[in-house]
Amino acid sequence: MKKFLNDLREELKKQNLTDLEIEDILSDHEEMIQTAIDEGLSEEELAKKFGDPKKIAEDLADLGAKKESPGSGAYESWKSFDPEDTLDVRTEMVDEDIRYRPSDNGKINVLYSGKGTIGQYELTYENKQLFLKAPKRSGIFSFLSRSKALDFIIEVPKDVRITSVFQKSVNGDVKVEDMKTASFELSTVNGDALINKSELGHAKMNGVNGDLHVTDTSMKSLKFSLVNGDLSMSGCDVKEALNVQTVSGDASIKDSTCAECGFHSVSGDIKGEEFYPKKVSLKSVSGDIIIKNKEDRGIEIVRKKSVSGTVDVRVENQE
């Protein structure tokens, strides 16, 4: 019994629980073991009944009051793969956030952080495709899967050509930094996306409430289709079409260029500043396109179909 309690104390300490919590758990165990002994259980029976201190400590750690959490937010490596010439990334997430960034060890690395159970996640790498899937959290049997979401980092070496990044998520956010991919597609309910200093090729985002923030990024095309989500772009170049479809979401575009900007909205507006599309088209009920530029590069209004919305391009030379 002494040994069991000592082992348990050590294991609980490893889990970073508070002293108060540890004492409470130990006194519960002391009482239970004492009762078992009073009832005449043999050493062997005791061992069978009480099992492994390590496992108890791990199970308790999930719900216990933790001490300061120096490690919180720290990522642990999960799996690494040897890359091939191209890569396709596909993820299916629920609440998990994912960050993409370049790898500095020549491998594809997947890191995770959080209190969830990593074993419940599915990760495969075959036929040049990386696939990461979160466990389902079913409504009716939610009590059977009381799991917490983890957050992930996916690192890809810069010399690997990423042919596509496809992510499905409910609440999870995506952060992309310094990456180059031929296509990028995000389908979300509430998740946001943050893209910085990247090349996305053909980019698509669709969903309900998520926002998209893109900075210093070039794209071949961007199709943004959300109900209430907002789009903010700055320092971006869209070589071909920029299509924005919202019900009430707004777009704010700064220091960016694109070939053709198509805006389709009920009440959302596009506000541009130093925004130079070659052509614009508007289809809205009350949504406007308002652009303030310093240079006159000639913006052609291809089509305007709106009840009360307008396209207003102003050149304000401040010199």
Binding site: D28, M32, G51, I56, D59, L63
Partner: peptide, 8 residues
């Protein structure tokens, strides 16, 4: 089952 599972 044992204590291991029940106590937590």
């Amino acid at each position: 089952v044992n204590e291991n599972t029940i106590y937590p």
